[in-house]
């Protein structure tokens, strides 16, 4: 070691963590502690009440496959053919509700999204429509279902209306963001050619966002299949009606059979819709 060691310079001190990092950690911990105490969150039942839950879970683990039959076995005299087919009718109803609601919601959403983007609408209109849309989106699907069921009467129609509004909120927001991001060139070209607002939207904006819009529409259709399991609980039709019925009767073996059917349907529709969406964008 002939080379002289370099003189030791002063070491700069490690900077303290930034205020936002500290604030972040503190607020996460703080909010979590608050939330846990506020709702008396406790994992204790996992030990104390596991047996109680286990009874249900064990029943659910043995699905009642017979419940899925849509025909009457020859040896079962007490079997009612109407009851047998009810599950499948409800499933079809779910599908119908989902199709109608996504179509209606998406048509409304296209108009709304054009009004919600400053690319296509005047500023004051945009502001009002945006506030309206975020209010629409802040309510969950089930709130709309409750309102329409109470306003009309239980049945699939309130379900369609509830999901229509719910879908409109989602698709309008996503599409208006796509409109915000369109290439402004063609819009300028349409303006320069003397187009009206409506013509400009038709020829320069809508064609650009169409693939995204269709993709969002398929996406809310997927959501609707799942959502109709929920809204049926409050009387808005579809498979949820059956789930509610069996849940109240405590037939967990039947419930798990229904859940498996829903699972298969959802996965199948998701795969179809994802393939379509990939081709769109």
């Amino acid at each position: 070691m002939s080379a002289p060691a370099p003189t030791r310079t002063a070491r700069p001190r490690k900077p303290p963590p930034g205020p936002s990092a500290i604030l972040g950690v503190v607020s996460i911990v703080g909010i979590t502690i608050f939330a846990v105490t506020w709702i008396n969150f406790s994992l204790a039942p996992l030990y104390t009440n596991l047996t109680g839950g286990w009874v249900v879970i064990r029943e659910a683990l043995q699905p009642d496959w017979g419940y899925l039959r849509w025909w009457c076995p020859a040896d079962d005299a007490g079997c009612n053919p109407t009851n047998r087919i009810r599950l499948w009718k409800a499933l079809l109803e779910t599908f119908n509700i989902a199709v109608l609601a996504s179509m209606a919601g998406c048509v409304l959403a296209m108009g709304m999204s054009l009004l919600a983007s400053s690319v296509s609408a005047p500023k004051p209109v945009v502001r009002v429509v945006k506030v309206f849309l975020s209010a629409v989106r802040s309510l969950p699907d089930i709130a709309y279902a409750l309102i329409f069921v109470a306003a009309m009467s239980p049945g699939p129609l309130p379900g369609v209306l509830a999901l229509t509004i719910f879908n409109m909120g989602i698709v309008a927001k996503l599409t208006s963001e796509s409109i915000d991001a369109v290439n402004p060139g063609p819009i300028e070209a349409a303006d320069a050619a003397g187009a009206t607002r409506w013509q400009r939207a038709r020829t320069a904006i809508v064609p650009q966002v169409l693939p995204n819009y269709l993709s969002y529409s398929l996406y809310v259709f997927e959501l609707n299949i799942r959502a109709s399991a929920v809204i049926g609980f409050v009387g808005a039709g579809g498979i949820g009606t059956i789930i509610n019925l069996e849940f109240n009767r405590g037939n967990y073996d039947r419930l798990s059979a229904i859940v498996i059917v829903i699972f298969v349907v959802v996965v199948a529709l998701d795969l179809t819709s994802q393939t379509l969406r990939k081709r769109l964008v």
Binding site: P45, L50, I57, I243, L255, V259
Partner: peptide, 25 residues
Amino acid sequence: RAIPDLVFAILVMLPIFGLTPTAGA
């Protein structure tokens, strides 16, 4: 992801935790 959250709630959480916010969480 394919199972609606409601299913977890009614098949697993409500039986164990009862009708409480803990079950929902």
